[in-house]
Amino acid sequence: MRAAKHLVGLGLSVCLTLVLSSCETSCNFSGTGLSEAVVSAAVDPETQAPTDIRSSFEASIETVYASVKVNHAPSGSKVKALFFYLQDGVQQIAEVEKEVSGSCYVSFELSPPAIGWPLGQYEVRLLLDGEGEKRAQFSLVQAPGKPDELSAPVPSDAPQQSQLPSPELDQISYKRVAEANLGFSFEMPSDWSWELTPKKDYLISGPSGSQAFEIAVRCHIVAKSGGSAGSLQLQFEEAQSQMAAVPGSKLLKKGLAKIAGVEAPFFIVGYRTKDSRGVQEDFAHSQLVLETHSYYLWLSYSAPVAVYTAYLPVFQHLVDSFSFADALDTSAVKE
């Protein structure tokens, strides 16, 4: 059984997959009610009793379980679970109920949407026949020490590559470039160039003859005209599908990254292709998307793995410096 609702102000949809245990029949209905409402990283597959109980989860987790113990419930009783996102006020994101009887644990399995968990505080409220409410709160956080990380792990089966020396990052000077018509700007190395391609993308690359020449940073604009572009989540899922169609591609990572004051979903894939010299190399490709009032902006970064790793701080600087002439209104990303 699935329920899907929007998280207001984040432009994300959260799908919750709910798995509930069957209860053992009991004839003793004294002391009917709920107890032990908790959230955990796992449940016992036989009894649905919670294991690895937590109040905080890293955003990389694939499943979060909300559980409660049902005590001596008469036949035909119903447990209702209501889920809320608390980061921007109290926003209900799902509601579901299950018929139970007797005494047992009931667990609800929560899975993130395709664009990853929205970070922040959550709450689940559980009721038995509309009474005896029990609550449990939990939070989704970035991994400690790894905020907004866009680094790409190297696939375990990738051929060994020679390590490139990291560029002298403290010696790189930056310049700010602006797209006046669309109202955004960012900083890039002073000796890098950016140009409008025939496909109307902006291509940013390093100087010819340097390691950075292998880098391709692209800004791609998708207009919302007529509503044909779809939602942010649809954009994200379609982009992942396109990259998955590349022969030999592998999804390495996905999550949320901070850019222009908002959290933008991103993914990283690895694939094998030719570099500018015609030599087959293992590439890493990061891609993130954010939404404005009138368009979606895709920002991607790709290069051979060794170059990607060496220049990742430069791309991170570009992301951190990205801004709009008018601050993004989060109400523009509700769909």
Rank of each mutant, 00 (worst) to 15 (best):
V154R: 14
Q235K: 05
V289N: 01
P159I: 13
V100R: 12
G183C: 05
L251K: 08
G33V: 12
H317Q: 15
P118F: 00
K80M: 11
F138T: 03
L256S: 06
S286H: 10
S77A: 11
R176M: 15
G145D: 01
K134G: 08
G33Y: 05
D44T: 06
E335N: 06
G132H: 09
F266W: 03
V19P: 04
L150I: 13
L234R: 08
T51S: 13
S228Y: 08
A216R: 14
L169M: 11
E36M: 12
A180V: 12
L252A: 07
D52V: 01
Y308R: 08
A244R: 13
T47D: 07
P304G: 11
G230C: 04
K78L: 00
Q160S: 15
A257D: 00
A260H: 03
D282R: 14
G230E: 05
I115E: 01
P207L: 11
E123F: 00
A229V: 04
I53P: 04
L251W: 01
N181D: 14
Y202F: 15
G248C: 10
G76I: 08
D88I: 07
E187Y: 03
G33R: 05
S75P: 00
Q91V: 04
E291P: 02
S162Y: 06
S228V: 14
S26W: 02
L126P: 00
R135S: 09
R54D: 03
E58S: 03
E36L: 14
W194G: 10
L119H: 01
K5P: 00
M188K: 15
Q171P: 01
A303W: 07
F322W: 15
S151K: 07
P165A: 09
R135M: 06
Y301Q: 04
K98P: 00
E168D: 15
P167N: 12
G206V: 14
M188V: 10
Y174C: 03
V314M: 08
S205G: 08
K80S: 06
P153A: 12
K146A: 10
G230A: 08
R218I: 15
G132D: 15
E214I: 00
